[in-house]
């Protein structure tokens, strides 16, 4: 995902000289090509995220298009007031790209996990929030971010994340993508976002073996949320499940819940994600998924419970 982003940024920079790459002491090696081609347009701020965002807003006020990049937890939280005041309040065309979505930096611990970033970015007036599922989507979203005139947050997993799409597809901001669907009837609609989609797809396969047909929707845009696909899917199945590598407070689950509640839809509803806690434990990324209730197995059993309660 990271490499797809940086490749797309490199291409954007070639076409538009206003595009700048701003980092806060990270991106060694991966930015080499960008730095070599556009040395004056790559700025390393050192370990000073708040200053990076404040300066980015100043640059944007002069017509530049800064893509700021650092670890998602530091980017969104250390510099939050700069994002709110300097970028959003002043409607500056600054892009925020957070690396290390969820707990992908597994054994580095909770300081390095981004598990409330979607909640706080979504709350900001004027902010568009993207959560790509893999390399292809990260690339499309990066290009889309450049097209949008205003603040954008992109939540990236790490490099080496698998591709979930088998073929190219039409990307549209705020339009969910149905990745799997039942043959005729559907027992549950599962809305998910970001790198954890791979677990949801595994769970979908297992559920199908068990005779449970689930629709899987990739919600690559957390804000604006795709109301239509939520309303249509919920009305069809009456069992709605959200899966996010993030707190269940304020992120995808909350966004979907808001749409369901405000549209008078009666559905059995379950948010799978961190239940208001920091991600616990150390180990591999897969270990972390298991320990924090986000493995394919956990998603399968939660889905079965929900469907059976119907």
């Amino acid at each position: 995902m990271r490499n797809a982003y940086i490749d797309a940024l490199y291409e954007l920079a070639g076409k538009d000289e206003r595009v700048l790459a701003l980092v806060a002491d990270n991106g060694a090696i991966v930015y080499d090509k960008f730095r070599a081609a556009y040395p004056g347009r790559f700025i390393n701020f050192g370990i000073a995220e708040a200053n990076m965002i404040g300066v980015a807003a100043g640059l944007a006020s002069c017509g530049k298009v800064p893509f700021t990049y650092t670890i998602a937890s530091f980017l969104t939280m250390r510099a939050f007031e700069q994002i709110r005041n300097d970028v959003c309040m002043q409607r500056m065309n600054v892009k925020l790209v957070g690396i290390g979505a969820g707990f992908v930096y597994s054994n580095l611990g909770a300081t390095h996990h981004a598990t409330i970033d979607m909640s706080i970015m979504r709350a900001l007036p004027g902010m568009t929030v993207f959560s790509p599922s893999g390399p292809l989507e990260a690339r499309k979203i990066t290009k889309e971010a450049a097209r949008i005139d205003g603040p954008v947050y992109i939540r990236l997993s790490v490099g080496g994340s698998p591709e979930i799409y088998e073929a190219d597809y039409e990307f549209e901001t705020g339009k969910g993508v149905i990745l799997r669907d039942g043959p005729e009837t559907v027992d549950a609609a599962i809305f998910t976002t970001g790198g954890i989609i791979t677990e949801v797809l595994k769970a979908h396969g297992e559920l199908r073996h068990m005779g449970i047909n689930a629709r899987v929707v990739n919600v690559h845009t957390i804000k604006p949320i795709d109301k239509d696909i939520i309303i249509a899917s919920a009305a069809k199945t009456r069992v709605v499940i959200t899966v996010e590598e993030h707190s269940i407070i304020g992120g995808l689950g909350s966004a979907v819940a808001e749409v369901i509640a405000e549209n008078g839809i009666a559905a059995r509803f379950k948010r799978i994600g961190l239940q208001g806690v920091f991600a616990g434990g150390y180990g591999t990324y897969d270990d972390m998924k298991e320990m924090n209730g986000l493995s394919a197995n956990a998603i399968v059993s939660e889905t079965i419970d929900c469907v059976n309660m119907k």
Binding site: V55, G58, A60
Partner: peptide, 14 residues
């Protein structure tokens, strides 16, 4: 504490 980073960004753009 916001004016100086913002101003520095403008100075850099110049």
């Amino acid at each position: 504490g916001h004016g100086l980073p913002f101003g520095a960004g403008i100075a850099m753009a110049a």
